[in-house]
């Protein structure tokens, strides 16, 4: 039987399948770990409605906890409050940058207006130049947009604030 602290420790090692430098706890999607008579319940808040990694993450969580010695493990989804990039741990931001993804700026407040032709001046994660251009609002996954550095000419991704 695992303690709650041991369960969290095991979860710290579960990687996000699409951004393998960040764990699910650093991503801020694990809301609660509940030790009950019927086993261990992990409450997860999905990032995007259609995120294709959701099911894989749930499987990885179950596998990791069982490997750490847990008995019965179940994963529950909780929608409210909705996940925000503001929940990403400070420790994960440098890891994202080192991996080539610019970490998210603060999320838009509720009721914020939609911005047209947004030109965020993002620093290139490779050379640091702020001479960068957005190529696409949507990158390889819904949570990122695609940019290009006009100085080092390398493409890079931006974790969109949500």
């Amino acid at each position: 039987m695992l303690t709650e602290a041991q369960a969290w420790q095991a979860l710290d090692a579960v990687e996000d399948p699409e951004i393998p430098v960040v764990s699910v706890t650093e991503l801020g999607i694990v809301r609660e770990v509940i030790l009950g008579e019927d086993g261990l319940r992990v409450v997860v808040t999905p990032t995007y409605s259609g995120c294709p990694a959701t099911e894989m993450i749930a499987e990885s969580i179950v596998d990791a906890l069982k490997a750490a010695g847990a008995g019965k493990v179940s994963v529950e989804t909780r929608l409210a409050p909705p996940w925000s990039t503001d929940w990403i741990a400070e420790s994960a931001r440098e890891k994202l940058r080192a991996y080539g993804i610019v970490p998210p700026q603060p999320a838009l407040p509720d009721g914020a207006q939609v911005v047209r032709f947004m030109s965020r001046k993002l620093p290139c994660p490779r050379c640091g130049s702020s001479h960068t251009t957005r190529l696409s609002e949507f990158g390889s996954t819904a949570c990122k947009s695609l940019y290009r550095c006009e100085d080092c000419r390398e493409p890079f991704e931006y974790f969109k604030p949500i």
Binding site: P46, Y48, S49, L79, A80, P81, P82, W83, S84, A107, L108, A112, V114, V115, R116, F117, M118, E137, F138, A142, K160, I162
Partner: peptide
């Protein structure tokens, strides 16, 4: 409540849809 939770989540995504298609 369940509908309100879905709405709060979808609202964040809808902002990006409107930004992209509006542009």
């Amino acid at each position: 409540e369940a509908l309100a939770a879905i709405a709060a989540k979808s609202l964040k995504e809808a902002r990006y849809h409107v930004e992209h298609t509006g542009d």
